[in-house]
Amino acid sequence: MKIDKTYEGSFHIVGGDFSHAGEASTELKTILLSAGVEDEFVRRVAIATFEAEMNIMIYATAGILRYTISPEEIRIIAEDMGPGIENIELAMQEGYSTAPDWVREMGWGAGMGLPNMKKNADTFRIDSVVGEGTKVEMIIRR
């Protein structure tokens, strides 16, 4: 597959389903690698998507991860039905986390997820409504 047009796809993610953690981002990574795009670009996409996927899995009931691949960039939208984020500014700080202990025991919840998405994306937007959910939109350019 060569990226000469726009490709779209989506993954459904179920909250708490850790046995499938990382499958969406792994699949997206495979798609990009098979298209022959640069390793460093694939790595940034995979990391940003994985963090988004893990956040849905940790905090939300369910979520959807949509992607649009074009020759120049990839757009990822992660939208969940979750508790929402009360203070986005605080959540964006490295090390700030509200993750419960059982999540931390699995190696997650160190408060680096959102900052890491922002770090790997060229454009990063987050909107959240407490009690409804969170939407993260990222654009990563080649």
Binding site: D39, E40, R43, I47, F50, E51, M106, G107, W108, G109, A110, G111, M112, G113, P115, N116, K119
Partner: peptide, 20 residues
Amino acid sequence: DLMSDVLYYSRGNSVLITGL
């Protein structure tokens, strides 16, 4: 042991040393 640290700070072609 923090997987988010791996994603944040690591580079490709590395060795990860972990207790997890």
